[in-house]
Simulated assay, not measured.
Amino acid sequence: MIKTTKYVLLAALALTIASCNQSGKSEGGETGSDKKFVVGATMLSMQNEFIVNVSDEMEARAKALGVELITVDAERSALKQVEQVESFIAQGVDAIIMNPCEVEASSPAVKLATDAKIPIINVNSETSAKPTAFVGSDDTESARIAMKYLTEKLGGKGNVLIMHGFMGQAAQIKRDNGAKEILKANPGMKLLAEQTGEWDRAKAMSLMENWIQSYGSKINAVFAHNDEMGMGAVKALEAAGLKDKVIVVSVDAIPDALQSVKKGALNATIFQHAQQQGSKAIEIAVKAAKKEQFEREVLIPFQLVTKENVGEYLK
């Protein structure tokens, strides 16, 4: 009788230990509730100050949430970006955040993630393929705000130059659409020339120098798709002694641009909230990975920043 009781107790103990091992620990030794989520992020270019600001906020929010974030630089290459997403899938990450290089060429990455049943969140820019969620701003609206500002400053009549971002990227396409929409509604506003500066300050400066040689005093205004290009345009105009005669507006409200607006060099910038975009992207990625409810689209409004209100945006 005593021997039988002993065997029963040993069997019960073995079952208890097995049960604890199965329910209390994951394969990696973590408790199920304490699983550390891993998010992979591929960013358009870490040479772009605004994108770096988004990335920094993603890192800060991931740390606050106890999430491991692996960030890689696509270096403006959609092909490289697709390969990076493939690598994340092979690593078995819980979610992917993509800051797309191009609307079409980055789209295969969305399908790869979707097929692998890994949530993919597009941040700041879009793809034609629909991701799990999108966090960003309405780029068409940023251009409307910019062109309305120029139209008002010029009294509805003047010659405008447009510096495009990287051709084929969603922001470039939508900002072009928004600008053309306002130009069409204001016949007195003439498009003198348009060309890409590829989001780059040095390239924009060189482009502006060429335009100054070609058009000189005919130039009344410049709309640059981002602040990096806007700052390049300002530098070229200052060197040519034309800045006081040409109005320049750009998008993003990076620190350099805000200081330039404060000094009166750059006339205006359109504030785009890098911090909100970065933090929201991480939050949604984690919720999607946990299969919790999340917002499928988050659009953060743009705001016009001029010398009159720039103090509100300076840190």
Rank of each mutant, 00 (worst) to 15 (best):
L304Y: 06
D139G: 12
L9Q: 11
E181V: 03
E141P: 00
Q277R: 02
Y149N: 01
K180N: 13
L154W: 03
M229G: 03
G241P: 09
T4I: 13
G155L: 11
H225W: 00
I284E: 05
S87V: 01
N186G: 02
K111D: 15
V251A: 00
G24V: 03
L69K: 08
K203W: 06
K174R: 04
N159W: 13
I96P: 01
V261T: 09
T269V: 10
K263A: 15
N226A: 03
L10T: 02
L150M: 06
A133S: 15
D73G: 09
F166R: 07
D56Q: 14
V82K: 09
G230D: 07
E152C: 05
I254N: 01
P255I: 02
V298E: 09
L207F: 02
E181F: 07
K6L: 13
G66L: 06
E27R: 09
M163W: 00
G230H: 10
E49D: 04
V246Y: 05
D138Q: 10
A233R: 01
L258P: 02
H273A: 08
G232S: 08
I118Y: 03
G66C: 00
G156H: 10
I121L: 13
V261A: 12
T31M: 04
A185D: 13
K235Y: 13
L150N: 11
L207N: 02
Q195D: 11
V8H: 04
A90N: 10
T306Q: 12
T31F: 05
Q277A: 08
L65D: 11
S260F: 10
E292W: 05
A62W: 04
G32Y: 11
V39Y: 01
Y7L: 14
Y149I: 02
I254P: 00
N21F: 12
Q81M: 13
M163K: 00
A236G: 05
I17A: 10
S125D: 10
S106C: 11
K153H: 05
Q303R: 06
P255S: 04
E104K: 15
S128Q: 14
D227G: 04
K148T: 09
E49F: 00
Q275D: 15
Q47P: 00
A288D: 09
G40Y: 09
Q303K: 14
V234C: 12
E102V: 07
A64E: 15
V52H: 07
T42F: 05
T306V: 12
P100E: 05
P131W: 11
S206R: 06
A239L: 02
L192M: 15
Q293F: 12
W211F: 09
V310Q: 11
I51D: 12
F37I: 07
D176C: 02
I182N: 04
D115S: 13
I282L: 07
Y149H: 12
K203G: 07
G241V: 05
Q259H: 08
E198F: 04
R201F: 10
G188C: 07
K180F: 10
